[in-house]
Amino acid sequence: VVEAIKDLVQDCNFDCNDDGIQLQAMDNSHVALVSMKLSTGAFSPFRCDRNIALGINLNSLMKVLRAAGNDDILTLKAEDQPDSLNLVFESPGQDRMSEYDIKLMDIDQEHLGIPETEYAATISLPSAEFQRICRDLSALSESVSIEASKDGVKFSCSGDIGNGSVTLRPHTNVEDESKSTSIALTEPVNLTFSLKYLVNFCKASSLSGSVQLCLSNEVPLLVEFKMGAGYLRFYLAPKIGD
């Protein structure tokens, strides 16, 4: 998760409570917003006696996380009024244990209330497919139009060297649900977004085999990667006309 968001947001509060750990942060330009939740089910055990916000610089956290082995068990601990976060990595065979403390910071962050929204179009597609579309089209243009209709969803762009588009039609993969493409539509949608941000969101592709795009005209796009016990959501404000 940290790897997926560290290029978008730098200093974040990890809000801990009985439900688990949540994070909400806007990127520097305030065009995109990251919202993450790791429910208690993601942890074993999980304990939180008092609601607490752990202000963490993600670059610092990455430096420490890189010291962990892929299969290590990670334990995160913070005291009641902490000035640091304690991280312990234990190898699966328990023959190696490493321990780090990183300094916490006071982060005064604007918290936005995001209402439950009934979107006009909800598209589910393989995350690798979405990543490829964003990467391919970003070679041509800075922005992409996403047009969802009952026939399919069309990603199109135009730039100095020419234009391009990719159209996806609904498709069911019976063996692997995450490889299916589905489109649920209440009304046609056509919105334009900056590809720079979408390419950035796709760094989360390794977290989930499929990604959900939720669109309604004139509201931010929701790009959601569902995780075992939680989610990573990105919201992106649409581009507006001249």
């Binding site: 305030h30 604007e110 918290h111 936005l112 209330g113 931010p220 404000a237 507006i240």
Partner: peptide, 14 residues
Amino acid sequence: PPGQRKINFYYSQK
């Protein structure tokens, strides 16, 4: 950025 609104145009502060 030009041609682009900020996200807090759409969502109010909690």
